[in-house]
Every structure is written in C-alpha cells, then in structure tokens.
Write a protein that binds this DNA or RNA. Structure first.
Length: 720
DNA sequence: TTTCCAGCCCTTTTT
DNA sequence: GGGCTGGAAA
C-alpha cells in the first residue's frame, strides 16, 4: 500500500515519531512544531500500515476543542470517519465508561454531572447544613480542598488527620458532600476520573476488557496530566499496550490546578519510551524564537529543547514603556490600527495579558475606536445563569431527585416559596433520607406546610409533573421550549432586569432551544445506552460551549496568556510586563511558581508568528489604587539586540533618527508638520520612526486623536 | 418575601 | 474599580 501521503509532509523527527515500531514513544514537542500533525499521522499510520482496528485505539486530549480537531483531521487524512475510534477528553472517556458500568460503580442510570458552579453551590449548602462558620470554612476553599484530594486519588478515609479539630471538620465536609452526591446520583468532574480509576483497579474483568481493547493509547498535552490521570493511563496501559505520549515540559502552565509536569519524567522512568524531540518550529520568526529560547533558558530542570526555524529572521521585538495603563492601551490599539491600515486583519492580532481585569482598558479604547474585538474567558454558553435555570427544569424532568436542580428553580421564577419553606423541605429530606423532590411531595400530602406555602409548592410539583408527562412524546427541543414557556422564565427576567439584559437572556434561551432541537446524540453515547436527554445534559456539563458566539467576525482577540496556549497570531501584544503583575506577586516568591510564570511568558511569546510587541506601564490602578512597578524580569532576560525600544507619547526623536538621519522623509514631512488624512482629517506629526515609505509616523489628529501610521500606506497630504 | 445597599474580596481555568 | 454576598428594611 502506498503510504507516502502519511509521510510526505513530515520532517525527519516527525517521521521518526509517526513510524516508531514496537514500544512506547515520548514526543517532546516544542511550541509550533506540529505536534497535532504527528498525533494525527500516527493514528493514520497505525490504522493503515499496522492494520490496527480503530476500535483498538484510544486518543486522549484535554479539551473538547482539541478532541474535535483531532477527530476532524484524522477523518480527513484517512478520507473516512474512523468509526469506533475513541477520541476524547479524559473526562469524556471516563463518563462513557461509567455510563456503561453505572450499576457496577454504584451509580443510578440517570446520574448527572455537576459542573463547578453546581459543585460550589452544593458545598455551600453542605457547610450551611452542618451549621459551620462560612468565614472559617469558605465554600471556595473547601471546593479546592475536596477537588485537590480527589485529584490525588484520596477518599475522605484515605486522608490522614492529625487530630486537628479544623482538619477533622474539613474532612467531615468532604464526607458529607460525598454522601449528598451519592444520595442524589451526582458526580463531579474529579469524581468521573476517580470512579473510573476505582472501577479499573477493583474489577479484574473490566480492567482486562479495556486493556485488551486498547492496544494503542495516545495522549496529548501530557505535561498537563494530574496524578489521577497518570494513574488511569498506567492502568489502561497494563503491561502490553503501547503508549504514544506528546508533551512539552516548557509549556506546563497548569501546575496550580494539579497538573504534574513531573509526569513527563515519571513516564520516561516508568515506561522507558523512545524519546523524539520536535524542535523545528513552523510558526515564528527566528528572532521571536531566539528571544523565547533565551527566556526559557533561565529555568532550571528542563528536559532540554531549543526551537529553531528555517524561516526568516524577521523584525526585532518591540518594547513600549507607557506612563500608565491607559497610555499602554492607547499604544496597543494604535499599533493595531496601523496594522489594519497596512491591510492586516483585526483577527490576526491578539492582545495577551496575565489577568482578566486587564482587558477593561483595552476594551474601552477598542470600543471608542470602533474596532471589533472579542474577549475570551468569562461565562460560556451553558454556564450562563438563564441557560442553567432552564436546564435545571430539564434536569428535574430527567431525574426529579437532582437536588441542586431543585434548589435552583424551586423559587425561580419567584412563586412565593421562601427560605423558611425550603428549609422545611431540606430538613424533612435529611431526616427521611429522601430527595428534596420526594420530601416536598410528602410534606404536601401530609399537610406539613402552611396553606400558602403548600399551594405554592404543590404548584411547582405540578409544573414538573406536567412537563414530565408531556415530555414523553416530545422531542428535546419541544421539551426545552415547554419548560421555558411553562415556567415563564422570560417574563421573570423582563420583570426584574433592564430591557437589554433581559433581551440578551431571552436570546440565549432561544439559542438553547435551537441547541436542543439540533442536538444529535453521538454514536458512542447511543452505544453506551444513554437516552438523548442524558446525552444532552452530560454534554452541557462536559462541554460548556463557546465563550461567545460571534466567532465569524473579523476582530481583535483579547485573552489571558493561559487561554492563548495552542493558538497563533501574526501580531501578538503582551501587555502588562511588570513585576508583581507578570510574574504575578503571588507567584514571585516560590521558585517553582516563578518557573511556571516564566513558562507562561514562553507560551505567550511563541504565539507570535511575525511580530511580537511587549509593553509595560510605569503605573497602573490595581484594586482602585495606583501602583508603580518595575519592568518584568522577563524583559531583562531577552537579549537587548533582539528588541527595539519605543517610547512614543513623549515628544522625543525616535532612535533611527538620532543616528544622523534627517528627521524628515522624501515627502518633506517633519515633526510639527500639519497633514491631512482622508479618514482622520487634520493632524500634527508628533514622531517619525524610520525612513522612506516604511517610516512610521505618529500624528495627533484634531478629532480622531493620536494614531500611528505607515507613511507608504497612509496617503497623507501636507497642509500649509 | 423581596429588594436594596454596604461591605467583602480580588491570578491563571478546563472538565 | 467592580462584582458578589448577606444582612437589613420595605
């Protein structure tokens, strides 16, 4: 068989990884070195050359987006849909296994996944039920405590308690929370993994089954695996299956949420894999790579890697020092306008920052300049309050014992069921070991409520009952619509929120109905015996959807450095390069955390394809107070010869001109000249950088403010 | 029961 | 500076 199409487009190192024979493989894949390509081609290679059945392959990624892309690319390369091939996230794959063996792991058929918000609310509920001080045991912190232990594979009984009253209470909260989940058929994200691990560990039959099935296991972003995930991988691998692991220790930026870079080293030790390094970069200019390499060099304990490229040297990095954060934002947006003036697209530019709060200033300027932009982060579709409200009704129809769903909508919209009444239901439920739904019903029947509350609760129960009865014949979309209509959710938002806010919520509800209507159950879910509703609910929890709908628009991309991982842009800005902000204050003290900040810097720098612009402000408002800070230490780790410093804003001659060149170009523009621009009108030349058609000049326009323009493109007319 | 305001917190995020 | 929470007032 001709397999040249699988190898043609690969370089030597990539080919070595793709065609590796027997044994495990560890691919250390630098940024922009084509790791997804290697994974995709490896899968195709195994299927077409080694005739491995797609059924015998398991490919694991960290995000649904990555899984989707891999699935798509494998299909395209093989020119068919590889049915039976399991490609998914750790959580998605564990979920599927648990559905197939629900009874065996002690879960009801209708078990529901708790997302972090559900989990947080439930933990807060538990703490209140236990009558503990919420100041001493903040729910956020307890959520961290529980998830941390679960991710290390520890049940409450596995945690050593040194007879500390405080520690004992923390454990009690974990235990109560867990009991609550068991009772209501709920499972949080970490539990998906832990339950699966226990299933494979404790059941010889199941372990044997999956070990026999998956002869080849491929894992992406291995540096992001946590303890539980690595344990799962080891269990699934057994003694004979082949692991193909791709990762980059230099891009490990999630240590703070339990990821263990050490797993890369442990893998090397535990499995003695063939190690392949992908160091040729296909993304950035040589200058950008050199700068990034030099920064990451300051980290100790690296596995060692040096990115190189056959491509252009490219321009020097730019460094801008702003007086304050406002000026920094003005500068960045002016450079983007400049880029667009020259024919660049807004979507080719990204503004990266360390913390979300930094986006505000950029948004203000972008809004004023009427440049479309998109901010990553924030709430995603299925995390929006109105969507969760409507989904809670569907959850109750699917499983009335879903207490978090019950709590969410028992009085939403307000139907006169207050805290006292709900407390009564909770209390009854706890004493009877029932769900809130059952407790409410039995209290209704036994007349345990006041007349007023009783009517209200009966009304709510009847509503759920009606929806349940009708749902039998209806499709998912109709059921969703019915729930929204009957509950009168839209009226509720309209009655208590400003019109634009309420309208946005209504639009989201309409979108939710559309999503339900067009939902097609994944083939694998159907095989695992899930009902379409169960599939839909699970997917909403596991895959919360897009941050914002308008992807299509050509707009500037704003995001944190963390969310930029895996992406690339021709023009990248890294803003807020200041000590205290980046590296962040809270990470600066510990060497390990500082190293992670430096990796974050490396990740940011390697996003840039053509141009990288770094900026810092001498002062900025943080928490309502003006802070003064020094430039980030990472800036000083970049060799000076790779950086061009810009200091516009101050009326000062640019460096290029101080070397004797006349501060004037062929068209006779000089500082102070008045010019006319077709769009921006009249303005005064403030700064000139460079010469000839490539010269960049800053002009203070009378009405449009300060702009940076490239002389060759700007069609300026000299006035007077 | 609902609504409003003062006081609290404040790094990064996917599942 | 701004978003969320909980306690106090209507």
């Amino acid at each position: 068989m001709d397999v040249s199409h699988l190898l043609d487009q690969l370089n030597d190192a990539q080919r070595e990884a793709v065609t590796a024979d027997e044994g495990h493989v560890l691919v250390l894949a630098g940024a922009g070195s084509g790791k997804t390509r290697v994974l995709v081609h490896r899968i195709a290679w195994l299927i077409q050359v080694h005739h491995v059945s797609p059924m015998g392959l398991l490919a694991v990624t960290f995000t649904n987006k990555a899984a989707g892309e891999m699935r798509h690319r494998v299909g395209k390369l093989l020119n068919l849909r590889p049915d039976g091939l399991w490609i998914g996230t750790f959580h998605g794959i564990c979920h599927r296994m648990l559905r197939m063996h629900a009874a065996e792991v002690g879960l009801p058929e209708t078990f529901q996944i708790l997302d972090s918000d559900d989990q947080y609310r439930l933990i807060r509920r538990v703490i209140r039920d236990m009558e503990l001080d919420e100041g001493e045991f903040p729910a956020r912190q307890m959520q961290g405590f529980i998830n941390h232990h679960k991710e290390e594979g520890r049940r409450p009984g596995d945690i050593e308690c040194f007879d500390h009253a405080f520690q004992a209470r923390q454990l009690a909260i974990y235990q109560h929370y867990q009991d609550y989940c068991e009772r209501s058929g709920l499972i949080d994200f970490a539990e998906l993994l832990l339950r699966t691990l226990e299933l494979l560990r404790d059941s010889d039959a199941r372990r044997a089954h999956y070990q026999d099935r998956f002869g080849h296991i491929l894992i992406d972003e291995f540096q992001d695996t946590n303890t539980l995930q690595y344990a799962l991988v080891r269990l699934l691998a057994g003694s004979k299956n082949q692991l193909f692991v791709v990762g980059d220790d230099d891009q490990s930026i999630y240590g703070w949420r339990g990821a263990k870079v050490e797993n890369v080293v442990h893998f090397d030790r535990d499995f003695s894999p063939k190690v392949v390094r992908l160091e040729q970069n296909y993304r950035s200019t040589a200058t950008i790579l050199e700068a990034a390499n030099r920064v990451i060099d300051h980290n100790a304990e690296r596995m060692g890697k040096n990115l190189w490229t056959e491509g252009e040297k490219g321009e020097a990095l730019k460094l801008f020092t702003a007086f304050n954060a406002e000026e920094e934002a003005e500068f960045v947006i002016a450079r983007i306008q400049d880029w667009m003036e020259q024919g660049g697209r807004a979507s080719e530019t990204a503004i990266l920052y360390r913390s979300n709060a930094q986006s505000r200033l950029f948004e203000q300027v972008l809004l004023r300049e009427e440049i479309p932009y998109r901010v990553y982060g924030g709430l995603r579709f299925f995390e929006r309050a109105e969507v969760k409200d409507a989904m809670a009704y569907l959850r109750l129809v699917h499983n009335p014992h879903d207490d978090p769903a019950f709590e969410r909508v028992i009085n939403l919209p307000a139907r006169g069921i207050g805290e006292r009444t709900v407390a009564l239901i909770r209390d009854h439920a706890r004493r009877q070991g029932q769900s809130l739904f059952e407790a409410a019903r039995s209290l209704c029947e036994s007349g345990g409520f006041t007349a007023r509350a009783g009517n209200a609760v009966a009304g709510f129960l009847a509503l759920i009952g009606e929806l349940t009865d009708e749902y039998g014949q209806a499709g998912l979309g109709e059921a969703m619509q019915a729930a929204i209509d009957r509950a009168e959710l839209a009226d509720w938002y309209r009655s208590r929120e400003p019109a634009d806010r309420a309208e946005a919520r209504e639009e989201n509800l309409a979108e939710l109905v559309r999503a339900a209507e067009s939902f097609t159950q994944p083939f694998e879910d159907e095989q695992a015996g899930l009902s379409p509703t169960a599939s839909f609910l699970a997917q909403a929890a596991l895959e919360a959807g897009e941050h914002q709908g308008e992807r299509w628009q050509d707009c500037v991309q704003l995001m944190t450095l963390h969310s930029a991982k895996g992406l690339e842009f021709p023009l990248v800005f890294m803003a807020g390069m200041e000590e205290g902000l980046f590296p962040h204050q809270k990470s600066a003290e510990e060497p390990g955390r500082l190293a992670e900040e430096r990796r974050l810097c490396y990740v940011g720098m390697t996003r840039a394809m053509q141009q990288l612009v770094l900026s810092h402000a001498e002062s900025r408002m943080i928490h309502g107070q003006t802070n003064f800070s020094r430039p980030s230490r990472f800036l000083s780790e970049i060799p000076a010869e790779l950086v061009e410093e810009l200091r516009p804003g101050r009326p000062r001659v640019a460096p290029a001109q101080s070397h004797g060149g006349a501060p004037q170009d062929a068209e006779g523009l000089s500082l102070g000249t008045t010019v006319r621009h077709p769009r921006f009108g009249l303005g005064t030349v403030v700064t000139i950088e460079g010469q000839g058609a490539n010269a960049r000049i800053q002009i203070n326009f009378e009405s449009a403010g300060s702009k940076w323009l490239v002389l060759g493109y700007a069609s300026l007319e000299r006035v007077g």
